[in-house]
Design a protein around this nucleic acid. Structure first.
Lengths: 335, 335
DNA sequence: TTGTAGGCGTTATCAG
DNA sequence: CTGATAACGCCTACAA
């Protein structure tokens, strides 16, 4: 059942059927009704491939992420999909894992599928070493690239993100103001936002200035399961590194810290304060509930799609949009 | 840059280029190399739309779910996407929400995009009232329908799921064996698996037989946030409904029960046992960690895709595959 | 307001 | 082994 069949049954040309379908050109009310009746009767749906071939677009946007089951990423994907669909676009999902070469491979795969744009979710797509970002710039020459929660300089690359630096800076300062000195920073990603967060922490701690603390001790990179995070902190304690607060780059790390406190008989927040990041559902599952930094994911996603649609319309769009984060105070801190 | 350009540069016909591209028919090693060289040199990628039009497939599978940010669903989507991609298929994601009419609408949208199959994630796609499932059967006439964690009778509809009935039955029995009598069942979905779980509970409880318990009191449907779940349980307690254990149809409900215990000064598992469902990350975030029923999501997803690929190959595929669940014992029970 | 015809870029079927 | 050529189904000038 194609447009020819419909045109025959309705006694008009395929051009007229096409016009009715797309509602652009003028068609007399009478023929429009007849055509619609036939379409309805036959249950006809235009062939999306043929349309795609002609228009060189299937109104589809690729979403690239490392791991769509991570609660934060999952939430982002949900928001993005909703917004895209509201604008008549489909979402093609692609999980790359964390390997840089895989990311590049999947980016090319999406491009070969001729998506109208590619959205990178998570700042871990922007690598520290800039030559590893070249494939993104290359891709940007064929379609607009949207980065959710990150940014990268380059033409046709649009980033929306939170001011992570400032958020962590403020959080650290708030801990200090409430009497903490030995604040540990725990993170699991060398990404764009990862290094911003770290910088915020370092700026607030001023290790160089005075501090009797050893920077290397208090800046802890660790990637692993909740269990392993707990064990890692325990091993730090055993090494003699003492801390009265932990700031993390992700809620799951903070959960690990909470488990560490439980296991070592430390009361939270009295003996150990903990701050998570992302304000994900995890922050409400534990006891006490996590104080967490909310990086305004919904606003970021919504802005990302709005920007993309503006790009499609050929409007002027800022290459970078920054929201400010908010500290959501719950039970693991006492400020 | 299309196949004609390549054929010209290589001094062959487009048919030959196509053959090289698809590696099916025989091409002399010499011309193959020449063509490949030109393709490489030009960075040529075949147009997916044109190919889709010709083959009537873009090797894309639609994934329909209510809410992709739910941890359980998110995990499922992750597994599905991985498996699909390994088989050379893309995943088109579509979040419908819980309204039945929306589900139908999005199903049709996917069909109009000519996906090669549609995967329904979550048994909440199978409605109690069977006439509401008609749209799924209709869809199954054009593409194979795969149901993850659910099942529906009908041609070309393939379901993979866990034996939820048995899992809950066993869990309830285990609670009884460890001295519990007043076991509350808390659920939030009138879905296919939802009613199976409930049946398992009811069978184990045998309210009709003897029981001095009022079935209406102990079967609690409640949909809401963790906070609201907690409050709901508190209100039950205030109404005089007493319980020494809670089995839930979802980990988030179990988290709510745990919060209820904390708020009301009940020790877990001594004074209140709790069993969750799905064995999601949430079950490891709380303290004590949740005993939860693992419904073998990875196996279910993996089997679903294997089945789908078999369907594509025209092989005989069972309409329904049932795995058995496993109780993962953690800190909220004492058996 | 409507119809005709060419083009979109492949794949596949035939001849050679 | 290779080359013409006809689909595939739609959109869109251009003509009428």
């Amino acid at each position: 059942m194609n447009i020819y069949d419909i045109s025959k049954k309705a006694g008009v040309s395929i051009a007229t059927v096409s016009r009715v379908l797309n509602g652009n050109s003028y068609v007399s009310e009478k023929t429009r009704k007849k055509v619609l009746a036939v379409i309805e009767e036959c249950g006809y749906t235009p062939n999306a491939f043929a349309r795609g071939l002609g228009l060189n677009s299937m109104k589809t946007v690729g979403i690239l992420c490392a791991d769509s089951s991570d609660p934060f990423i999952a939430k982002a994907i949900y928001y993005l999909e909703q917004e895209l669909r509201q604008n008549g676009y489909d979402a093609l999902l692609c999980c790359t894992g964390f390997d840089y070469l895989e990311k590049e491979k999947y980016m090319n795969l999406l491009l070969s599928k001729r998506t109208d744009a590619v959205i990178l979710v998570g700042s871990n797509f922007v690598e520290d070493k800039d030559n590893k970002n070249q494939y993104i710039r290359d891709a940007a020459r064929s379609v607009p690239i949207i980065i959710v929660n990150g940014a990268l300089n380059g033409e046709n690359i649009y980033g929306t993100l939170c001011d992570d630096y400032h958020a962590v800076y403020e959080a650290t300062k708030a801990l200090q103001a409430s009497g903490h000195e030995r604040i540990l920073y725990l993170y699991n990603s060398h990404s764009y936002s990862g290094s911003n967060k770290l910088s915020g922490y370092l700026a607030a701690m001023e290790f160089d200035q005075h501090s009797n603390l050893n920077k290397e001790d208090y800046v802890q990179y660790f990637y692993g399961s909740i269990q392993e995070i707990k064990d890692h902190l325990t091993s730090l304690k055993q090494k003699g590194i003492s801390f009265d607060a932990v700031i993390t780059s992700d809620d799951s790390l903070a959960i690990g810290a909470l488990k560490y406190a439980k296991e070592n008989g430390l009361t939270v927040p009295e003996q150990l304060s903990i701050i998570g990041y992302n304000n994900s559902i995890l922050s409400q599952c534990c006891e006490p509930e996590l104080t967490s930094i909310d990086n305004k994911l919904e606003a970021v996603c919504s802005n990302s799609i709005r920007a993309l649609m503006d790009v499609f319309r050929g409007q002027q769009v800022p290459l970078r949009t920054v929201f400010s984060a908010e500290i959501i105070k719950r039970g693991t801190t006492r400020f």
